[in-house]
Write a protein that binds this DNA or RNA. Structure first.
Length: 478
RNA sequence: GGCGCUAUCGUCUAACGGUUAGGACGCGGCCCUCUCAAGGCUGAAAUACGGGUUCGAUUCCCGUUAGCGCUACCA
């Protein structure tokens, strides 16, 4: 029994950057398709010409690619397909499943207002449904603008079995005769989506729960158009820390921003997947391949989830630590390039780059940390942290010891982990300093920071020449 | 206002009638230690409320409450 191939789609409106909610919707569709050997279709819903832009489309595609989400078909552009959609409306009109409505937007707005003031529910009152063919034609001839409205059944109910939410039902009498085409002839959202999903043979529609209320209208449309309804699954929404729907108010909401902050795409996808889905095994850190392998629509949660930047950061740190060293080094290299530090860097050869990353990675939560906190591991120009200077380099004794350390390192036969430590401890003992304090002073001198990887490993990484130079410089300034 | 959806630690979640309600982030403590991370151990922290059904409810049903969503000639 060969079942039809699964076809899913992601259909963003290019009215802004790729929102984390949208990114998760795309990811779940993609994971589902990849897990089932299905096809992932990308469609740009750019029918709102006012708010859509080609630039936004470009950014959204770029963000998807960055996340590792690739598409098998598309991108299709919905605006280019309006003629097709309008034809469907025309057909429904001819079949009596839709009718022309001449009510003006102002008139409708007035009725809505009145109802709202009386705290009454209001849906379109079907004033124009009474018009017969002749009357309608007459109005059209008078030049009165009209829209095409879908004729919703008066009774009964429209129900569907949601893959994620379970059975959902709506009474038809509470569903409005919604607009199919606007007065300028352009199709509206419901018509476009359904027409395209039919045309593109979408088998599973996985989207945000904010579309649940739209669904009965679309189900009705499928039925009127004589097409089976695809399987529907509505994902819980992503909320801000105040439990309100995640929006600009909450700060970083586009995946673009997290990318700029140094979040790895693997970590972003990993965290997003955990918002509403869990494998049930307790595992939380996955590679993309593991996610594809484990993903299962039946394990998606029904309740909304609060976006937690702290956990995202932790997931990111985990990926930074676990990623293959060579791959991670390449990421850091690109980050350095992006920051304009690569040209001045002394850590350009692969071996040195890997050593630096190896030393720093367990202490970095984002790529940004490598070039800010870890700056001294890549370039010679770095600032000494004021607090570190105050704590370790402010007294003359430390400065003198540092100068001594520099000269002894210079004449050391072998510059090793063991010898550098022995010399330092010797100097500390000789001068009545605590070893920890001298280590701290040296650390600040060579890394600019009171917090860094183990000192002697750092010295070895930097090499004798660079170490001596930095020690002398700090000693001179102290 | 109407309609719809949801409800386990602060947050993300596990449990698919029987568990001392588990894990993770974050927070606190201890260990490790040249600082800080990482790592290991550990502590505090939850089934919204009220009724049923059942020998037994986090789990099934109803109600209440709360939150969210939709309510356009936007998508």
């Amino acid at each position: 029994m060969e079942s039809r191939q699964i076809r899913v789609r992601f259909a963003p409106s290019p009215t802004g950057y790729l929102h984390v909610g949208g990114a998760r919707t795309a990811l779940f569709n993609w994971l589902f398709a990849r897990n089932k050997g299905g096809l992932f279709v990308l469609r740009i819903e750019d029918t709102d010409l006012e708010r859509s832009s080609g630039e936004m489309t470009r950014v959204i595609l770029d963000s998807l690619q960055w996340l590792g989400i690739d598409w098998d078909e598309g991108p299709y552009y919905q605006a280019q397909r309006s003629r097709l959609h309008a034809e469907n409306a025309q057909r429904l009109l001819e079949q009596g499943k839709a009718y022309r409505c001449f009510c003006s937007p102002e008139e409708l707005e007035r009725k809505r207002q009145t109802a709202a003031e009386k705290k009454q529910a209001w849906i379109y009152d079907r004033a124009c449904l009474q018009l017969d063919q002749k009357q309608a034609d007459a109005r059209a001839r008078e030049g009165i603008a009209s829209v095409i409205r879908f004729r919703v059944p008066d009774s009964g109910e429209t129900a569907f079995e949601d893959i994620i939410q379970g059975p959902i039902r709506f009474e038809n009498r509470l569903i409005e005769d919604f607009v199919l085409t606007r007065s300028d002839g352009m199709p509206t959202y419901h018509l476009s989506v359904v027409s395209d999903d039919i045309e593109m043979q979408i088998t599973h529609i996985i989207r945000g729960a904010d579309h649940i209320s739209n669904t009965p209208k679309q189900v009705l449309l499928y039925q009127a158009l004589g097409h089976p309804v695809p399987r529907l699954g509505h994902l819980p929404l992503i909320l801000g820390s105040d439990k309100k729907r995640l929006s600009k108010r909450h700060g970083a909401t586009s995946v673009e921003i997290y990318r700029e902050q140094g979040i790895l795409p693997e970590a972003m996808a990993n965290y997003l997947a955990l918002l509403g889905w869990s494998p049930g095994s307790g595992q939380e850190v996955f590679s993309i391949e593991e996610m594809v392998e484990r993903f299962d629509l039946s394990r998606i949660n029904k309740a909304n989830a609060v976006f937690d930047p702290a956990k995202l950061e932790w997931i990111n740190a985990q990926h930074i630590q676990r990623m293959e060293l060579g791959v991670m080094a390449a990421r850091v290299r690109s980050w350095l390039a992006k920051e304009g530090m690569l040209a001045d860097s002394f850590a350009v050869d692969e071996k040195t780059m890997q050593s630096a990353v190896n030393l720093l990675r367990s202490r970095c939560k984002t790529l940004k940390d490598f070039t800010t906190w870890g700056r001294a591991f890549f370039v010679e120009q770095f600032e000494i942290d004021p607090a570190g200077r105050e704590k370790y380099l402010s007294n003359p004794a430390a400065a003198a010891a540092l100068a001594d350390l520099a000269s002894q390192y210079q004449s050391l036969e072998e510059f090793s982990l063991e010898s550098t430590e022995r010399v330092l401890r010797g100097i500390a003992a000789e001068r009545g300093l605590k070893a920890g304090d001298l280590i701290g002073a040296a650390r600040v001198a060579v890394t600019g920071n009171p917090v860094a990887p183990g000192l002697f490993e750092v010295l070895l990484y930097l090499g004798r020449e660079r170490t001596v130079m930095r020690l002398k410089k700090a000693a001179g300034k102290a």
